[in-house]
Nucleic acid binder design. Structure first.
Lengths: 211, 211
DNA sequence: CCGGAAGTTGCGCGACACGCATAATTTCGT
DNA sequence: ACGAAATTATGCGTGTCGCGCAACTTCCGG
């Protein structure tokens, strides 16, 4: 078993029962870690508790995650990466902002709004914020590819795709912080859309320059 | 003694000898930590080594930093925060991109280019990347204020200042990654400027909307 | 159905963050 | 300039933690 971060999503990629069980265990561990952290606070969560909650040995827990933070954030990172993948799957003709909206709607379809308490913890707890930010940057790669596919630019040579991708994830992060303000009642997707719209002129300007 | 993160820069702010010694110790510890990490690799740096290198007891080291990563990144975070402060000190009439250029030139005046090996370590080592990203987001606050001062918008109500601030720091981060590519020979400040220029249209669009 | 691969578990070690108590040092009022 | 108060440095002990190692168990392919 490897804890290779790159395999975390591709766990169900190839073989059958084995990989599925692995992913299930990882998700169970992450769910347990998040639940306990929300219940009793990050400080009062022992590794053994997480393992027990997920029904595995503490040693096995450490085979999947090398820190509580990683365990707690995994589900959210997974969700962000799903959005990134969904985005890359949208037709390249579709405008970026619209594609992002669809990708998010796809992810949050049916389900409720994202949990504010969880997000608040991710941001306020210093130990989690680092992992949270790392997770966000992990989406920038796929996002840059999606952007490159739309603009026809090469991410290796031209700065634009990666810069815009980073700007978009940053906008999403900023939107999240704004969404968490108690006065805000607008749905999450709408706030994100507004934030992204603020940097959309950069994308349009680049299109114009390219044409 | 507190390790309050908010006091890290303001250590020399008020009182005299006491605060200055404190800051000196903190910087010495950070320098030692960074130097050792570069020499023998992050894995082979014990806390005791850092403390010994800085001439303090291991316990004292832990009074200043609660993790190796924090210690290693402190100097860089400090530098980023200085740039943020310098930016906020620029005249509000000055265009944002230009002000950023001046603030960076002010920081890197005389000194050499930033160390590529160090930056590469910050990005490649997962343990450091989280702290590195946290440091970058810490600059977003001052940056947002500088932007708000230029646009006259209120960061509490309007998304724009914070979104643009986050986009700018993201652009700087992306520029850093591009700067680290072996083929790149352009000076750091130039790459950063190019990256920021790519998102500048968003700022101009907002100005236009406001006018 | 069997042999090897992959996953799980228990044990133990090295390291680390931090609370607490004590000594050393700086600051400040007079 | 001197002594009390506040701040800081240090030593020690404790509770965790991450992970290497070596069995043991489960799963997959032929």
């Amino acid at each position: 078993m490897t804890t290779d971060i790159g395999d975390q999503l591709g766990e169900a990629g190839r073989s059958g029962l084995r990989a599925r069980k692995k992913l299930a265990t990882r998700e169970a561990l992450s769910r347990a870690a998040l639940r306990l952290a929300l219940e009793r606070g990050l400080q009062n969560v022992r590794v053994d508790d997480i393992a027990a909650e997920a029904g595995v040995s503490p040693r096995t827990y450490n085979n999947y995650f090398s820190s509580r933070e990683e365990a707690i954030c995994f589900l959210s990172v997974q969700r962000a990466q799903r959005i990134g993948a969904a985005l890359r799957a949208r037709p390249p003709e579709e405008p970026l902002a619209e594609a992002i909206g669809h990708a998010m709607a796809e992810e949050y379809a049916g389900r409720s709004e994202p949990d504010k308490v969880t997000m608040r913890m991710f941001i306020s707890e210093p130990a989690l914020r680092g992992e949270y930010l790392k997770g966000l940057t992990a989406v920038e790669g796929p996002l840059a590819e999606a952007i490159a596919a739309r603009t026809g630019t090469d991410p290796e040579r031209d700065l634009f795709p990666r810069v815009l991708a980073a700007a978009v994830t940053s906008a999403a992060r900023t939107a999240t912080r704004h969404y968490l303000r108690t006065e805000t009642t607008a749905p999450f997707a709408a706030v994100v859309r507004d934030a992204i719209e603020l940097i959309a002129p950069a994308a349009r300007a680049h299109e114009g320059r390219r044409a």
